[in-house]
Amino acid sequence: MFENDALRLLVAVADCGSFTQAAVRLNYTQSAVSRRIATLEQQAGGPLFDRLARGVRLNPAGRSLHRHAIEVLDRLARAERELAVLHAGQGGLLHVGAFATANISLVPGALRALRDTRPGVEVVASEGATGVLMQQLVNGALDLAVVSDYPSGLPRTEGVTTTVLCEDELRVALPREHRLAGAGALDLRDLRDEAWLQSAYGDRPTMLADACARAGFSPRKVVRIAEWTGKFGYVAAGLGVALVPSLAARAVPGTLVLRSLTDPALRRTVHVALPATPLPAALELLGLLRGEAGPRPPA
């Protein structure tokens, strides 16, 4: 109903106590101030000022609108300041999403560095599957997402750009007392008699099933365990082995060892996804993620 400029004019006239002095402050003509105040009073349903012999004074209606005008203008000023620091990459919220194993060390390491370089930026972190994260980028709920092409490729999403971050090798986790724990890179055929721990459900093809088929066998047994902590517990108990991304290496307990596999297809590509017009802080985080990705530690 009330324009911001009209509210600013109301405040200026109230502060100055005079249309003439308010006109000087705002670089208006006195007649322009009078006309705009008259329009504002029409919108307000009645007079806002008492006209005195020398100047003007807010009446009860004017004092009421003046109080609200101060609140509105203050909020707008704060919004302008927040937007300025947001677009400069020096403050505001940055919504970041990532898949589970990227949140073990890759993303936290980059966010720690971002906190040091841009302490005014407040990060809101979340976790999800790649398809969900990509859709959240489209919806504007995320400013940056770390995603991967596993298990079914990277979704093509309009309005989202992706940059390859690193290749993530899949290794096999074994208990330390396993007969192959001290070996070098393993051929999957060396593990043909093992039970395998997987989190995927249903009949969806998996990277493990495809790799085993290339090696000429099918997994003897598949145990469905959703969470990484559960998988590690089962491996430590000698109840199976599991494929573990190198990104998750830091979370592997000391009771287990990771060994590389000779099949070059047992890897995934990790990407950073951004909206078409990324925030400066998101672009800086992309650079920090590249530095954090670096070479994965050897098996």
Score class of each variant (00 low, 15 high):
Arg224Thr: 09
Thr277Ile: 03
Trp196Val: 01
Trp228Glu: 12
Ala32Gln: 15
Ala32Val: 02
His95Gln: 07
Asp187His: 09
Ala237Met: 14
Leu73Asp: 13
Gly92Lys: 08
Ala195Asn: 04
Ser199Ile: 00
Thr255Met: 08
Phe19Asp: 06
Gln90Ser: 13
Arg54Val: 02
Gly254Phe: 02
Val96His: 07
Thr229Leu: 09
Pro108Thr: 06
Gly233Ala: 14
Arg36Lys: 15
Thr29Asp: 15
Glu292Pro: 07
Leu133Cys: 09
Asp50Arg: 13
Ser260Thr: 14
Ala200His: 14
Ala215His: 12
Leu285Val: 02
Val121Pro: 06
Arg189Cys: 04
Tyr201Glu: 10
Asp190Ala: 15
Glu158Gly: 03
Ala265Ile: 00
Leu9Phe: 04
Gly182Ile: 08
Pro278His: 03
Ala100Phe: 04
Asp116Gly: 03
Leu197Val: 05
Leu286Asn: 02
Leu26Asn: 11
Gly291Phe: 01
Leu137Asp: 04
Leu256Glu: 07
Val72Asp: 03
Thr161Cys: 05
Thr269Glu: 04
Thr101Met: 01
Glu169Lys: 05
Glu122His: 13
Leu86Asn: 02
Ser105Val: 06
Pro297Arg: 12
Arg35Leu: 12
Leu48His: 02
Lys231Ile: 14
Asp203Leu: 06
Ala22Met: 10
Pro245Trp: 08
Ala110Asp: 06
Gly120Glu: 08
Cys16Val: 09
Val160Phe: 02
Pro295Phe: 05
Ala53Asp: 13
Phe2Asp: 04
Met1Gly: 13
Glu284Phe: 12
Leu94Gln: 01
Cys16Ser: 13
Ala44Thr: 05
Asn103Pro: 00
Val172Tyr: 14
